[in-house]
Structures are given as C-alpha cells and as structure tokens.
Design a protein around this nucleic acid. Structure first.
Lengths: 210, 210
DNA sequence: GGAATTTTAAGGGTTTTACCGGATTGACCC
DNA sequence: GGGTCAATCCGGTAAAACCCTTAAAATTCC
C-alpha cells in the first residue's frame, strides 16, 4: 500500500509539479491544499500518512497547520517544505511537532527521502538544517518564544496579510468585536501601537512574507 | 521537433517539478538555472525557444535576465513565472520584453498554454494579469518600478515605519492633507490598498527594515 | 477542583484611513 | 508657450482602526 500524502503549498503550479514527482516515486497524493486551513480540514478528513506543508501560506501558515494537524490526526507525520534556512524557523517548526524539514532549494530526492524516513517513524532534516539545530542546541539559542497564543498568532498573520478586522472575523468565524479584542491584546503584549509595526513584527517572526 | 525550453527558478525542487510537468506535455527542457546570471549564460549557449524565468532570483532577478536574454538571443521568447500580481511587476516585465506572464498560483495548464502561445509568436498573460495591463493602459498609469517620486518614497518610508499621516505631515512640514495625497498616490501607483501591503512593499524595496 | 489563561463578546468612544472630488504652483521639456 | 508632472493644499464621507472597559465561556494547568 502506497504512502498517502497531503500536499500543501499556496502555489498550485508548484503543487502539481511536486505531485508529479512524488507519484513517479510511487507515493499517493490524496489531497492538495492552498492554505493552512484547507490543509487542516483535509488532514482531518483524509488522515494521510504524511503531510507536506509549505511554511509560507496565507490564512494559516505551515507552523499553525502543523500544530493543528498534530492534534486532530496524530498519526499524520508532518514534513515542512520551505526556502528558509534560518534557525528561528527550524526551531519553531520542531517545537510544533514536525518530523521533517526539507529545503525547496534542494533536489526532490531529499523530499522523497524525508517522506520515507518520517513514515517509518524516523525524522529527516536537510543537511544544513541539522547543523543549525545542533548549533542552536549547543549555544542554547533561545528562540524568542512568542508569548502570543495560537489564536493571536493566527490573527496577527491575517492582519499582516492586509485583512481588515471584519475579514479576519469572518475568516475565523468569530465576531468583529472578538477579532478586535485579539488585535488589541496582541498590540498590548508586544507594546506595539500601529498596524505598520505589527506587520514588520509579523515578518520578522516569519508569519508572513515581505 | 519539440519546443526547447530553459527553466530558471532558484528552487531546484520547484524546477524539477515543473520539468516533470512540461516533459509530460512533450516539451524539451534543455537547461536549468538557479539565478539570473546562469540563465543568461545558458540562454546564450543553448538558444532555447522559450525561457521560463522566476522573478525572484538571487544575483540577477527575472527582469534583468529577461533584458539580457532578449539582447543575446532575440529568438528566445521569455515567459515570466511568478507569484506577484501587482501592476508594477507586470508592467516592468512587459517593458523588459517578456512575452508571457504566468502566476504560480494557477494551474500548470496556464504555463503550457503560455509556452505554446509565445513560441508561435503570440503573447500570454494570466487572466487577472491582463486586467491589470488593460487597466494600466486605460488609465495611462505608466508605472515603471520606481516611478515613485522622491517625495513619495519619503512618505512611504515614514508610513512603513509606523508614522501616522499626521506625524508624517509634521515631520515633512506639510499639511496633513498633503501627506494624505501622497499616500493615496502611492497606493494608486502601486495598486495597493492597505497599509499592511504598503509596509511589505517598503520592506521589499529596502526602504525600511522588517 | 480551583486557578489561570485563552477565547469569546460587547458598548461606546475618538482618531485615522481610504476614497471621492477639485485646485494652485513651479519645474522641466520640446 | 503649451504640455506634463511633481508637490502642495483643501473639503467631505464612510469605513476602519484604535482605545477603554467589562465579562462570560472554554481551556489548560497545577
């Protein structure tokens, strides 16, 4: 029985390409998602063996999706697929329970290898990445752990993407006032007082792309 | 004889995926490049029928590469493949002599269609993109990448730093209404409609640090 | 089981943005 | 000397952002 895969990346064309490559290798891509929400929903529905998540996705990023998926489908192993090599991203991803971290700049073979490793219970990190992790561990690089709650991170991402409070509310199925509350608390916690600074913060945290 | 293609994208994995898709369609990918320089060199050497260029590449971006390739291999038709829908990218690309503009967020079929169109001398733009172009043409918004005036750049920077319009006005010794006018004009030129996107743009342009 | 935190929600207020107009001045170009 | 454009200024309106306070569920934590 082939390994069943959920593929999430916000660019359909990239997804199609990866799908073609993975199916050549005998994997079965059972679902595709363009954002973190969709990925989470599909993971719940399909219970795939492996979920491949891009980090930079709209609505909910890969980290958020990884956390959600680990909750609702614990048997699904998550592999992050990204362009980012920075320690901050890697460590955050590891804390979110991912089992593999693969760079888009590498050959597709690395992704294939990662899928095989994680689906038999092991882990896989692109080589530069393992260095980063060891380094961070040795130097006890304490990643600025976000005092922001998951929900707050979610709201922050949407705000930084340029969504209005009203849009945030409807995307998260909460009232406008609640969305406002989150926004207010975020600003309070971060001691930030304008959208612009909020956006820059979100970019530094890797929640959105510049 | 199959259409000969040069494929440039800084992520090897994405290239491999696209290559697989294109070869399924009967195209021949004769070369791959990870940056604009390499793409230019390979275009000179291989004289491909079509060059597919990502916009965001290190060393030399897609626009630079498109210009260079048009010079050294005029018979090569250039197709830009990117995630950016903003008017300024599109118009800059068109001025650089590209024949196709395809969004990564679309189905691979659009790329295939684009390749077919440009290689028989026509052009291809993803549908949203054609709207942008028509719009720009109708409004004579002749927007080169940096058509922001010095003053506008100044205002943009301050806004991206988190200054309110009132603060911008007092810092520049102009009236609030004037500062507002500048802001409005900037958004118009860039086809941007929220502060958040403005901030991200300013960061991409290097006007402010994240 | 109780405390703490998170998430949800609301009322009522001020300030700022976004978008719609229009108008004047000066510089530069052909 | 007329055209174009940058920079300045102004008025109005509707929407959104921002600020403060309060508070009930739901959670997670100890």
């Amino acid at each position: 029985m082939p390994i069943r895969i959920l593929l999430a990346d916000d660019h359909q064309m990239v997804r199609q390409g990866l799908k073609a490559l993975l199916e050549q290798e005998g994997f079965k891509v059972v679902g595709e998602a363009a954002d973190g929400h969709q990925a989470t929903r599909l993971a719940q529905e399909l219970l795939p063996d492996v979920a491949i998540l891009d980090l930079a996705m709209p609505l909910m990023n890969g980290i958020g999706a990884a956390k959600a998926i680990s909750q609702i489908s614990p048997q699904t192993k998550v592999v992050v697929l990204t362009m980012h090599t920075e320690a901050q991203y890697v460590l955050e991803a590891l804390r979110a329970g991912i089992r593999g971290y693969v760079l888009k700049s590498r050959a597709a073979g690395e992704l294939v290898q990662a899928i095989r490793e994680v689906s038999r219970g092991s882990t896989f990190l692109s080589s530069d990445i393992s260095d980063t992790v060891v380094d961070a561990y040795l130097n006890k690089v304490d990643v600025p752990s976000d005092t922001l709650s998951p929900r707050e991170l979610q709201v922050l991402q949407l705000v930084a993407e340029g969504k209005t409070t009203k849009e945030v509310a409807s995307l998260l199925n909460i009232s406008v006032k609640t969305a406002e509350s989150h926004r207010t608390r975020i600003m309070e916690k971060l001691d930030i007082h304008e959208t612009a600074s909020l956006v820059r913060y979100a970019i530094r945290r890797g929640l959105v792309q510049p």
